[in-house]
Computed example of a mutant assay.
Amino acid sequence: MTLGGLRTQCGELANLSEPFRELVTQAGIRGEVPHAVRCVVERHRVGDELHHAVLAELPLADAGDIWVSWLDSREPHEVERRVYCPVTAGPGIPCELHALHPDGHSWELAERHVTG
């Protein structure tokens, strides 16, 4: 989806409750679990598509990252390791999203600055 001709990240915010953060930590996520995450895939219609954000980076580059998914105004309900998108924009310019991401690749999207 474009905003004035510019393709942008969604930017939807998901606050992570303390019980959710504790559960993720108990499941073996290392490092600090954030209090909130923002959707990094291309801006999409509200209500009918999942939002996606990186929860934790894994130490090995080819291992992917831990991603969370959620519907609007809800806490994330999916937490899983996802490998990186294999598409590149040339040498040294990988897509930084997961392999099954919808719509545009990371280098095609401007960061959407949202408040809240």
Rank of each mutant, 00 (worst) to 15 (best):
M1I: 09
G5A: 10
R7C: 12
Q9I: 10
Q9Y: 09
Q9C: 13
G11I: 10
E12P: 02
L13E: 13
L13H: 09
L16E: 02
S17R: 00
E18M: 09
P19M: 07
P19Y: 06
F20M: 08
E22F: 05
E22Y: 00
L23T: 10
T25D: 05
Q26V: 05
A27C: 11
A27G: 11
I29S: 14
G31M: 02
P34I: 00
P34E: 01
H35L: 11
V37Q: 01
C39L: 00
V41G: 03
E42Y: 00
E42C: 06
R43Y: 05
R45M: 14
G47P: 06
L50G: 08
L50D: 07
H51T: 03
A53V: 01
E57M: 09
L58C: 03
P59V: 02
L60C: 04
A63H: 05
D65Y: 01
D65C: 04
I66R: 02
I66M: 05
V68W: 00
S69H: 03
W70G: 08
L71Q: 06
D72I: 03
D72T: 04
R74L: 14
R74W: 09
H77T: 13
E78T: 14
E80Q: 05
R81F: 03
R81W: 02
R82Y: 01
V83N: 14
V83P: 01
V83H: 15
V83A: 07
Y84R: 13
Y84E: 09
C85M: 08
C85A: 03
P86E: 12
P86A: 12
V87N: 06
T88D: 14
A89T: 07
A89I: 10
G90H: 05
P91T: 10
G92T: 09
G92K: 14
I93N: 10
C95G: 09
E96M: 06
L97K: 13
H101G: 04
H101P: 11
H101D: 11
D103L: 10
D103A: 15
S106Y: 04
L109N: 12
L109G: 15
L109D: 04
E111T: 12
R112A: 15
V114C: 11
